[in-house]
């Protein structure tokens, strides 16, 4: 099985030199630590291309935050813009990939990651725009929830963030791709077999 950092490292392998990429909150944020020598430009949807690491203590700037409202830094290539232009480049397909967390994904690539009915509703933020607009959507999440139930389903039970939007799913058990008739197993994590993945997955695996 992979831990959070191994999942992030595996996701980083999907990024190619020259890509503009948007990373979600949680495990996706860790992907930035594993891009190595590749020339990757990170977009933050509150209005920035070329997002740098967290500032040194004492250098925090309240005017410089990421989409998770965390203080960050700029790079020598950074560009700032307003929210309408930011989502213009997202909706316009200029961002090559988004790496996001999820609550549920189904075998058609439907994604649910913004609300649980009956619980506190926080809002979708920019997630619906991202999954509708970017070139590739890569989900990084645990294969099962805390009750041990599969998060890869035949049909999502939660309200959708986007329909038919997910291309690839990286979990603690391996890598799966959304195909025409179901999910394909592309890769298994260390000490995990294809049968282990099938046993932990409710969605159709072809």
């Amino acid at each position: 099985m992979w831990d959070r950092n191994q999942m992030a490292a595996r996701a980083a392998l999907e990024l190619e030199d020259g890509m503009y990429v948007n990373l979600g909150i949680g495990i996706p944020t860790l992907v930035a630590n594993y891009v190595g020598d590749k020339d990757i430009t990170l977009q933050s949807e509150n209005g920035m291309l070329g997002m740098g690491p967290f500032p040194f203590e004492g250098d925090e700037d309240p005017d410089l935050i990421n989409a998770g409202k965390q203080t960050i830094t700029e790079l020598n290539r950074t560009a700032y813009f307003d929210s309408a232009q930011s989502f213009g480049m997202i909706r316009g397909g200029k961002i090559a990939a988004a790496i996001l967390g999820a609550m549920e994904v189904n075998e058609q690539g439907d994604l649910a990651n913004w609300m649980i009915p009956g619980k506190l509703v926080k809002g979708m933020g920019g997630a619906m725009d991202l999954v509708a607009g970017v070139g590739r959507v890569i989900v990084v999440m645990d294969h099962t929830n805390k009750h041990g139930d599969s998060k890869l389903l035949k049909e999502c039970t939660l309200p959708l963030t986007g329909k038919g939007v997910v291309d690839m799913i990286i979990t603690n058990l391996g890598v799966l791709e959304v195909g025409h008739k179901g999910l394909h197993i592309l890769e298994c994590a260390e000490d995990v077999s294809r049968d282990d993945i099938r046993a932990a997955t409710q969605a159709t695996i072809v």
């Binding site: 967290f54 935050i65 203080t71």
Partner: peptide, 15 residues
């Protein structure tokens, strides 16, 4: 006032 919502930093020695 420009309040900061999530103050995140790294240590100097990581530089």
């Amino acid at each position: 006032e420009k309040r900061i919502e999530q103050r995140t930093t790294r240590k100097r020695e990581e530089a």
